[in-house]
């Protein structure tokens, strides 16, 4: 055996250790599409969100009659929920599609043990966060929803990063910081949400794409 063979052995071992524990086919383009969907969704949601928020704030602080009347609450809330559901659907479909496409090229199946581990570990905190946000709406605290979504999502990503690409850890931490800022700056919460779910997704998605997916050779898999 030459030292070159040994180098190959080590690369082979390292590759197997990584591939058997982490899901590496996650495509950066899924981040980009999720980010674009989030920005459009937030733009459409803005008037409805502000209506809920101000309505809520005025009622609480001065007990003055709500400027929009509480019967409009459900209309605005309905729009927000549908808008949010569509953004989520587009983001998930995009992630599945681009990751499936990438999995075909790298040869790593899209639904192997590492993918299942990633999905389960992300889904548990996210589902709990989803119910938490519904409860916030239910108790008429819409101003806290952007912060809550950012924080639960950040925790889910931070936790799931053990099972996939390292960039996810930084994306998770960034979402957490923004979530805490959104708690303090309630007036700018929707803008902060748009930065977290829109701009950061596009930024990290593009970063992952340029690092791992460009070029003819799949350099990350020996």
């Amino acid at each position: 055996m030459t030292s070159n063979d040994r180098m190959n052995d080590l690369a082979h071992i390292r590759g197997l250790m990584d591939r058997s524990t982490r899901f590496l086919s996650l495509s950066g383009l899924s981040g980009v599409i999720a980010g674009v969907a989030a920005i459009i969704g937030a733009y459409l949601a803005r008037p409805h969100y502000l209506a809920l928020f101000w309505d809520d704030r005025i009622r609480r602080s001065s007990l003055a009659p709500s400027p929009i009347g509480s019967d409009h609450w459900e209309e605005h809330l309905g729009f927000l929920l549908i808008d949010g559901a569509i953004v989520l659907l587009v983001a998930i479909s995009g992630a599945l599609w681009f990751t499936w496409r990438r999995g075909r090229r790298t040869g790593q199946g899209i639904w192997d043990a590492s993918a299942r581990r990633l999905v389960v570990n992300t889904a548990v905190p996210l589902i709990v966060g989803g119910f938490f946000c519904l409860a916030l709406f239910h108790y008429r605290l819409p101003g806290l929803v952007p912060a809550a979504t950012l924080i639960f999502y950040g925790l889910a990503l931070f936790h799931a990063s053990k099972f996939t690409l390292d960039e996810i850890r930084w994306l998770g931490l960034s979402e957490l910081v923004l979530g805490l800022v959104a708690l303090i700056r309630l007036d700018a919460a929707l803008l902060i949400w748009t930065i977290g779910f829109g701009v950061l997704h596009i930024f990290y998605g593009a970063l992952m794409y340029y690092r791992y997916e460009r070029g003819p050779a799949e350099g990350d898999l020996p």
Partner: peptide, 14 residues
């Protein structure tokens, strides 16, 4: 053998 190395590599981290 490379296969045995591979088997061990996967098993030590899972």
């Amino acid at each position: 053998s490379r296969v045995r190395l591979g088997i061990m590599a996967v098993l030590v981290v899972n």
